[in-house]
């Protein structure tokens, strides 16, 4: 049976969306699916080494997740890579615009990737956008 492919596009910098993206990506990855996570826009700065995971909440639920000690989204993304062989690819355009040096990114991220390459990777995959 062909491996199910999932592409998770993460552009938001809000806690709820980052959390949902991380939960979906990590569980899909450890369930045998081939997962590619494409980080762009407001999601990217959280993946600079040592950056805070204190993303602003969209609503009450984001605050509740902090109070209740839900696993933080960066831990889940890292586990998607380490336990489920997911790939996390930062958007090269977002890095250029924000002036972020690739060397400053978390070591579990892959190579900066442009849209042409991403669209190639996404061919035949389910694409989920957060």
């Amino acid at each position: 049976m062909a491996v199910e492919k999932i592409c998770v596009v993460v552009v938001s910098g809000t806690r709820e969306r980052l959390q949902m993206a991380a939960m979906a990506a990590s569980v899909a990855a450890v369930s045998g699916m081939e997962v590619t996570i494409f980080l762009s826009m407001n999601a990217v700065p959280f993946f600079i080494k040592g950056a805070s995971t204190d993303a602003p909440s969209e609503g009450k639920f984001g605050e509740l997740m902090v109070q209740k000690n839900a696993p933080d989204f960066k831990t889940l993304f890292r586990q998607a890579v380490e336990l489920g062989d997911a790939k996390i690819l930062p958007c090269s355009m977002a890095l250029d615009i924000a002036g972020i040096d690739t060397a400053t990114l978390e070591p579990y991220l892959g190579e900066p990737t442009g849209l042409t390459r991403f669209l190639d990777l996404a061919q035949g995959a389910q694409v989920w956008t957060f």
Binding site: M23, P71, L83
Partner: peptide
Amino acid sequence: RGSFCPGPLMELIAVLK
């Protein structure tokens, strides 16, 4: 205990490996 979905699952998978 004290964690929420998918935290306990991810802890299980880390040990299973």
